[in-house]
Structure formats: structure tokens, C-alpha cells
Design a protein around this nucleic acid. Sequence first.
DNA 1: TTGTAGGCGTTATCAA
DNA 2: TTGATAACGCCTACAA
Lengths: 360, 360
Amino acid sequence: MAASIIDVARRAEVSTATVSRALRGLPNVSEATRERVLRAAEELQYAVSPHASSLASGRTGTVGVILPFVNRWFYSQVVAGIDSVLRAHDLDLLLYNLGDERVHERFFSRMPLRRRVDALIVLNLPLSAAECEALVSMEVPVAVLGTRIPGCWHVSIDNAEGASTAVRHLINLGHRRIGMITGALGDPRGFTTPIVRQHAYRTVLSEADIPYDPDLEAPGNFGIDEGASAMAKLLSLPDPPTAVFAESDQMAFGALRTLNRMGLRAPDDVSVVGFDNHETAELLGLTTVAQPVAHQGELLARQILDALSGACEEPTQVVVPTRLVVRSTTGAASAARPRHQHLSPRPGPEPDQNSRTTAR
Amino acid sequence: MAASIIDVARRAEVSTATVSRALRGLPNVSEATRERVLRAAEELQYAVSPHASSLASGRTGTVGVILPFVNRWFYSQVVAGIDSVLRAHDLDLLLYNLGDERVHERFFSRMPLRRRVDALIVLNLPLSAAECEALVSMEVPVAVLGTRIPGCWHVSIDNAEGASTAVRHLINLGHRRIGMITGALGDPRGFTTPIVRQHAYRTVLSEADIPYDPDLEAPGNFGIDEGASAMAKLLSLPDPPTAVFAESDQMAFGALRTLNRMGLRAPDDVSVVGFDNHETAELLGLTTVAQPVAHQGELLARQILDALSGACEEPTQVVVPTRLVVRSTTGAASAARPRHQHLSPRPGPEPDQNSRTTAR
DNA sequence: TTGTAGGCGTTATCAA
DNA sequence: TTGATAACGCCTACAA
């Protein structure tokens, strides 16, 4: 059995209260006593019981992070950023992956984080008003990425600006037939990022007097495979786009894959812009809107620290800049646009279905 | 203030003990009573205090996951796999990112997970014997990915087999000058995966009567940038390799980037094989050794469930298969090998340093 | 500076 | 089937 505070107290010949004080570095403990306690604790390999401590003090030393996907590049980067800051302040990180719809519902019906965390970080999660309400009612500081919840701390990029820049880039290259691969699921709840970006796309087009065509918007749900399907859909239009804005690099990757498989090339046949500046974007030469990802995680964690320490009374709202990184998947609109759907595939990289697989 | 068990007991006109039993679905509670308690709890929005519960029961309902990087593709996939299984059994996931050396040391000197988790999952972490000892001494089930710790549960791929297959593939294509980009940091501690793979590489070469050349082994530390540097180093050899085995896809990506920047191509100038089957490997046409990543996470979590439920007495050890996926970065060794280092760069994708960046 | 003792919210062991 | 009550291990007024 592990040693308890009582064992340490006995060994150091002081009271448990003194042990508690000494171990936590509180004032009003003589140096001699503190050292005696420290040594006793050391000798007994004593470690405080976090549960007992939490129960008594009301603090948990834990921050909950809820997000829709752990395994997507963007989120794993953000989590790493959060972790680095939290860890430096001895706060633990409780991870909740709410991607699955049933898990999501269960989370909000049972609120398993209630009394379990000192603060909450919410990453890009589509939340109903009632769900926002539920989070706020936990009465701990909440920092939100990407969405706005009244009374909460807030970090985000300027999505309208980022998306506008991407679309303007394509227009400046002479494109008039510009598609968008959106992340929207048609979800009625408040994950506003895709909505804002889509709105920016439409606005910029209309400012350039380019007529709106709903067919040019294809949903990709932020996944590679879905991005690939979306691109296939766009290419199958009677009048396919000459340029496509995908609102995440992963969807852009999918789009590029579709192009590859059809024997088409970016930017020769279709220009492609992504969003994020994913770690492999450079390798693929993908033009994209870069945003500082891990940094946003750090900012969220810092906000939580501020809230917890009381350094800052009112929740703040920080907007970090994006920048357009032009690489080689975007180029000038060519005068003679090929009719993609009638092209016979060029010899390109071998489609994966046909890749030889050696079972082992 | 949140309602406590006492409030519920009063409202349902029973004792706290009965409330506890009713809420946890234990037997020996009459249906009528149980319903009364459930209703009272519902009305009061009662939720158990996890800390109080843990303190009293000794169970924490939490599993700790310690790993070297959350933000690398491989680990985020594994975590997603773990999470899905744990979540389905109402176990929480406490994440510890020990990538930083100081964080690592601090973790093992303070053991913050002691009494904080019911079980531990360790992902590919370089651990000293003393550190393994420390983990085992926590007296909770430990499941380990990639490394072997006596007394612990264990999931891994057959690394020797996977690496051998990759190298043999290159030899079968006629390559004799084969480099390896290794993940090893020269770390003396027990993260055996890179060691095993390196050993397999050497063994296969020697079986093919290819002389061993230490210059052909370049460390890449599993990162893209480091993989790129490693490839640059290999290409700068007096007698550079015609094929390279990178023991992770991310390092292979870096290698491909270096090739691109030097105006070289895979497989024309150098063949490249990776390891993992990263989500963008297909897009890049990367030949690689595929392993089921998220699945390994699920297996680890299942082992923990078995251990916790007592379904299985003895720790098990499961090895999952890998398979070679041949794509387009590997090809036959050409008779006339170009001297890479003397080539003038071909027009390839624009290097990123020079990419136009629009600040905003 | 140090000690005493009550309280944090459950669970688990008895006894009824 | 139910209830009383002693843990669980620590924190924190308050008192000394």
C-alpha cells in the first residue's frame, strides 16, 4: 500500500497539516521542518492522492479537451500545443473525442466532466445552443476554438479573410469558374467556420461579378476521401470548374488524388487551393492558406491559465493571422479549357486500387 | 452548488447507501426504490463526484496514455483507436505527452499518474530499465506498444519482418546500393523498434552479399525535416544509394522533398520505400510497409479492458501483420546510375523557401 | 510556526 | 432489502 500523508507526518514527527503545507511550498513552515518533511516523503516514496486532494480542495488539476477528431492533423497539432502549455503548469489533460454522434449525445446527457475538470477547452465542435448552455453551466472557464460561445474565452483565425484571400488569388489568376469543396455537413448547429468560409467564397465571387452556381459547391466533410469524391463530383459537371478552393488541405489532398487518377494535373487542368498548411502541403506543392495551428492550442491553454489564476477577469478573444502560401497547384487560367470529363486518362501515378499488394 | 448524494437520499427518502446502490445498478434494491432514487437524482440534476467515488472505491475510471508525440500521424491514429474502445466502456483517457526530455524526466521522478489511473498504455516510448520498473510498480495493468516490458501486455507488429520485406523488395528490383533512413537517436534506452528494423536491414543486405556500409545509414528521428536532411546526407555521399528505405512514411516524405528540391525523381533516380502507410502515402505514390495503426490502439485498449475485468489473468502479447504496398516510388535499378551530386537541378516544384508568401 | 479537527462526497461493511 | 457508519486521503479554518 502506498504511503499516506499520515505516514509522512509520523516519520517527520509533525502533524499532517504541516506535511501538507510543507509539500505544497506554502509559507509559514520553518526551513528545518520543511526539509524534514521533504526527506520523509522522499524516503516513503510518498505521492499525494490526487482524488483526496481534489475532494478536499475542490481543485482537480485537470483540464478537459473535447474535440471532434483526435486523428486529424489539425486537431492533433492543436492538442500538442495545448499539452505543452498545460504540462508546464502541472495541469493534466483529459481528452474527449466526440466525433461519434452517439458519443457526443451521451457526453451532453451525462456531462461526465462535471466536477472532474477545472476548465474546459472546446475545439471546433458543432454545438447546439442547449449544449453551449450545458458547458457554461459547469461553472468552469471554457476556452473555445473556432466557434463563439458567449461568456467563453475564444481563439480563432479570421476565416472570412482567409477564405476570401484564397478565392481572390484564383480570380487574380484569371479563373471565373471556381468551385469550393466545403466542410459543411449541413449541420444546423453552431460550428460556424465552414459557414463563414462559404459565405466569403460567395461574396468574393459576387464582388467579381461571377454568377453564383450552387453546383460548384461540393461538401467534403474535411476528410481526404470525401474531398476526393467532392472533386469527382465537380469534374463531372457539364461545365466543370477551372479552379477549386478546398477549405482544408486534407480535402485538397483528396481533390489532387482524384485529379491524378483521372490523369489530370494541377494547375494545368485545374488549380487547387487548400487551407491549413498541412505538413505535407509543401511536399505536394499545394497552394494554401496557412494558419498557425499548434500556436492556437497554446493560446487556448494560456487563456485557461489566465482564467484559473484570476490574472484576467473577463474572457478575451484572440484572432490570429493567416497568410496565403502560393505554391505550384495554382496557375493562370488557360484560354482553352479542356473538357475534363472527355479526356482519356494520361499515364499518371498508378491508382491505388491497382497497386500490387503483397500479403504477408 | 451541485447536489450531493445526501440531497438525493433525502428527496427519495432513503439512505445514501441505497442511493449509491440504486444509481450504480447494483442488485438488492427493490424496483420501486430504484425508481424513486432515479427520479430524485434526475430532478436534482445529480451527478456523482468522480473524486469522491474514486477515493472511496479505489477505482478511478481513467486510463493513462503516455507517448512521445501527440502530433505525429501515427500516434494520433493510435490514440483515436484507444479512445474509441475506452469511451465505449466509459473509461476516461488521460493524455501524457512525454516528447520533451525534461517533461519525460519529471514524469518519472514524480509519477503523477500514481493512484490517478486504473491502467496505463505506453506508446513507443524509449524507457530505461528503471523507468519500466517504475511503471510496473504502479501496480496497475500496463499495455505497451512497440516495446517489450516484462509483466506487461503487449501489442506490436513484426518489425523485423516488415523491414526485411521492404529491403528485399529493393533488392529484388536490382538495387545493391541501398540506404536506410533510421529513426534511431542513438538512444541507449529500450525503444527497440528502430534497432530491430535496422538490424533487419543489415541482415537482409548481408544475406544478399551486399557489403555493409555505415555511411548508408542516416538518422532521421521520424520527422519530415530530419528525413529530408538524412536524404540530403545520403545523396552527398561519393557513391550515393540508388534506393532508400525510410522506416517511417514521414521520413520518406522528407526524403522525397529533398529529391524534389534537387531536381531528382523517385524512382527514376532513387527508389524510396516508407513504413506505416500514412494517409498521404497513396497520394504521393509512396511504396511502403503498411501496418494497421488505429487497430493497434484498439487492441491495446482491449487488453486493458481484459486486465481490468479480470477476464484474462496473464498478460497477452499480440503481433499484427504488416504488408508491402507497392506504388510508384520504387522501380528497377537503372544500369546507368546518375551521379546525383553533380546533377544540375531539373525544373521541379518550386522550393518552399522561395514560395511567394502574402503576409496579411 | 505548528497542531487539532471538521469536512469534502462516495463506497463498502456490517447489522438490522 | 435497507440503513448506519466507518473508511478513503487530503485540505483548511481555527486555535494554540
